[in-house]
Amino acid sequence: MSLLQVENLTKRFEGLVAVNDVTFNVDRGEILAIIGPNGAGKSSLFNLVSGILRPTSGRVFLEGQDITGLKPHRIAQMGITRTFQTTTLFNQLRVADNLAIGYRMRTASGFWSTIFHTRRWKEDREKTMARVLEVLDFIGMTDKAFDFVSTLSQEEQKRLAIGVALAGEPKAILLDEPTGGLIQEDTDGITQLIKKIKAAGITVCLIEHKMNMVMDLADRIVVLNYGNKLAEGTPGEISTNPAVIEAYLGREYVA
């Protein structure tokens, strides 16, 4: 069974269908890329899967379990975390704090154990520290642990955003244009990081405009256009699909 199943998902905004009857699966351990021209409905699709938007119709299943319409934090706890298209971080806090927040859902200490510093509180603290150090190492930012987010470079912020999503030990991670706004030279680090995520056994869903990167990374590709699923297949199949070339590659790839 696939890790994630999206069935007949539709989202209608007033006067516009952002996602129209889209169905696809994401298999365990693969990198699935979602591509399509601007406004195709890619980000909306992520918002639907991660619970930020409620679908007009259709269902989403995680490991066979229906997660449609659950609150975002429930979906995150069940194992799907995400990054946002416009890099969002906890920009008033330090790098390590950002990661600790990413892991917070795996700790249970609440009000009372915090006030009385119970054993659970201490354990949670140890666990969080260990996880933060682990993720810092994974995203290669150990030396930045106590820097404020605002002092990081654009590329570092993108990496940290991925780290925050990874900290909570998700089964699948949804990356919305992880290199958006970066110059070509800066994308290599992110590409490597995504490969590393896959190697760690985490399933990746990736929205990306940079086609060479998609072709390099993706196991399979889903193409959206005006909210509809236009095609689905391996990079090889997609790059020779006439409908895709017509609708998407023909314009964007050349440009």
Binding site: I52, H73, T88, L89, Q92, A165
Partner: peptide, 22 residues
């Protein structure tokens, strides 16, 4: 504490906090 970080995550970026399971 971690609880304090939860508070601050809500202050700083509520949609992100929600997206990472808070």
């Amino acid at each position: 504490s971690l609880q304090g970080l939860s508070f601050m995550s809500v202050r700083n970026n509520e949609p992100l906090a929600e997206a990472v399971g808070i």
